[in-house]
Nucleic acid binder design. Sequence first.
DNA 1: ATTAAATATGATAACAATTATCAGTTTATA
DNA 2: TATAAACTGATAATTGTTATCATATTTAAT
Lengths: 127, 127
Amino acid sequence: MNYSKQREIIYQALADNVVHPSAEYIYDVLKQANSNISLATVYRNLNKMAHNGKIKKIQGLEDKAHFDHNTFEHYHFICKKCGRIFDIPCDIAPEIIKKTQESTGFKIESHDIVFSGICRECSENER
Amino acid sequence: MNYSKQREIIYQALADNVVHPSAEYIYDVLKQANSNISLATVYRNLNKMAHNGKIKKIQGLEDKAHFDHNTFEHYHFICKKCGRIFDIPCDIAPEIIKKTQESTGFKIESHDIVFSGICRECSENER
DNA sequence: ATTAAATATGATAACAATTATCAGTTTATA
DNA sequence: TATAAACTGATAATTGTTATCATATTTAAT
């Protein structure tokens, strides 16, 4: 894999961003920053980086994929009301994985946990 | 929700099936069984049944959704080689949920865990 | 049984997210 | 600096899924 300027700015846009953006969102951000990047390039590089573990791809309840530059082990919560995605720190999973691997004989290389429900803010706004 | 013949045969096709089929797969099965069912009807009813808890929708690693008539709590493993989806029984999750709910204040309504890697069979075939 | 309202259907058009294509450009390497 | 490999922008194509709509089926009330 060669160096590429576009991959660099895509990663930066992802890392600078508080939320967990979609490919389209990153594309819009970069467009507004006067880059003449192509949407295909955004998809290509996000997938490439997700593939080799530089970033994480979040594919869960929704129709489109989201990305996360945080690669330390954590999970996600999607709010059904506002659609926001929150990080969920978690340390119980290693047990599950070990247990599962032993009982099934499967080689587990990755795993994802996606919770969904109503976030606190939306829950409070409800009444 | 009214009774419907089509929903009945869709559920049967799902329940009779060993694998975790996609909507398209169920459609093909029913087509070959001489039903003149429509693909839209398959999608409509799978989603409806998933919505009211009669079946489970698996949305995870792949590009398309899969369905499962097993509604007891369990998770899934997707083999990166053969693409098959396996059930993973699991009883640790309730702890995670309680913990997460307490620490975040989020109301968790559902969750999904998708493991991926290489299944035993593919692992053995590798050498 | 007959009717009327609600719900479901098949066929297909529309849609949104993503990927493939391809000619031209950039990067790494010899 | 020449060459091959990798990357890019523009956009066409693909894929999974949903919307539309005229017709048919189901349900409940007469």
